[in-house]
Design a protein around this nucleic acid. Structure first.
Lengths: 258, 258
DNA sequence: TTACCGGTTTGATATATGTCAAGATTCATG
DNA sequence: CATGAATCTTGACATATATCAAACCGGTAA
């Protein structure tokens, strides 16, 4: 599964609508495929520093939809930078309840939950054909002692995750069903835009059930909310393909009474 | 407000039911007041290393109930180790909605949300008379480049916060009102126990409204759930003072249908 | 083509929690 | 001690979302 050599084993990934990579560093490629450089690791690093980071990373090959990147309880070794595709993370309660805690896409770092106990606290499951860069955490820590800008960046990534989770707590704790879906769609829109993809037209990689779990709703409620937005002319939706027709209207919808 | 000297400006804090401090290091004191050493910073550090950490910390004086430790949007300078008392953190939405994102008590670190943008993402408000140790983050980062065990500990604290938030997402996304309150009470119980306090009898420092905001419920619903537990003989409650009578029963309650 | 099969949509109804309102209790203060 | 302001409890009722059920759709395989 892993490829320890210094050169990617497979051709560079190409997504529609994405610029060509600007260097042959795997991590930089994972990053230069998107516009939002902060999402990925090699920010504010010199060429030499990026090479050091490259030296500790491995390219892992494809996961297909449904494959586990890691499982809850598994031993923690590495963080993963998503290189192509997307994942969901979920926590399972012993009584069978599950909660999707996030959807991760290209350029994002996954696995931070495992640091505190040395064991993963959730499952990570591929939503489509995907590839990740593995970043052995011991080596990442050692390198970040040498490179203050890498250290700071690692801290920022963890802090951003905390802030993101708090935003979801706000959503789950105090928003109505349709508001939650609006927030979700706008968040996807923004993340696609940051990667040079269309902010108004995209394919959902997850089911209504998975969206519902993430938003604390049943799948029927999610489906009804989609239909409602379509009836109001805010979006056009056909199963997994979505077009956001009225972005300002969607934004204005959040926080409104009734 | 700050005290830059090497010696605490006020007498050591004493809580009922808590052991005496074992050294005169402010951070170690904040820590040795509790049994769960991992909660606080100077874990696995030598005496000399703790002195280094002490050298970068300041003791801040009392906050009274309602005082802000920091405000959302404020410039990020420092993390804070709670030395005495307790705080709540809350995020505010522009439409006036607020969500309490956590309650923090002695030995816990607060302020991690601010690292990613250099500005605080939430408010931190004292729930009672409280004191904190200020830890200037630049100095903390510099020191953690020198001390790998401090570096790892800082990472664990951030990761633990991520895991905690994901647990609350599970609670908010898929539990019923009474289950949420049971989880909340058991979590408090465990944290008190870890500090050498009674796991079954304690005073709540927050209002029904604040508990409700944290749990995604209205205050009336929280009040009814308290009454329900009391009627079922699981707890005894009188406004802010709570006794957990049947801990196993409370645990068993979580996840049960109906 | 035909027949599945998982996922989605939509309708009818049930229920948990919210909303509104009135008292009761606790707490702060003169 | 008396007063008033918060906070908490409890009841009656409203409503958003869940539940249950049926029909619909798009892809895949026989």
């Amino acid at each position: 599964m892993t490829n320890k050599g210094g050169v990617p084993a497979s051709p560079l990934p190409k997504a529609d609508n994405v610029q060509q990579p600007v260097s042959n560093s795997r991590l930089k490629i994972a990053c230069s495929n998107c516009n939002l450089r902060e999402l990925c690791l090699p920010v504010n690093l010199s060429i030499g520093e990026i090479r050091q980071l490259d030296a500790i990373s491995h390219l892992k090959r494809s996961y297909v939809r449904g494959d586990y990147l890691y499982r809850s309880g598994g031993k923690f070794q590495s963080l993963y930078a998503i290189y192509r595709g997307s994942f969901k993370t979920q926590v399972l309660h012993e009584d069978g309840r599950e909660q999707v805690t996030g959807f991760q896409m290209i350029g994002e770092i996954i696995g931070l939950d495992a640091i505190c106990t040395d064991h993963h606290a959730c499952d990570a499951v591929a939503l489509e054909n995907s590839e990740v860069c593995e970043l052995p955490f011991n080596k990442l820590e050692a390198l970040s002692r040498e490179l203050p800008s890498l250290q700071r960046h690692l801290h920022k990534i963890m802090s951003r995750e905390i802030v993101r989770d708090q935003g979801i707590m706000l959503l789950l704790g105090s928003m109505r069903a349709e508001e939650r879906l609006a927030v979700f769609l706008l968040s996807l829109s923004q993340r696609f835009a940051a990667r040079g993809l269309s902010p108004t037209q995209f394919q959902l990689r997850m089911s209504r059930q998975e969206i519902g779990s993430y938003l604390g709703l049943k799948l029927e409620t999610v489906s009804r909310a989609f239909s409602q937005f379509q009836n109001n002319g805010l979006i056009s939706v056909n199963t997994r393909s979505v077009e956001l027709i009225d972005l300002p209207g969607l934004r204005a919808f959040i926080g409104k009474q009734h």
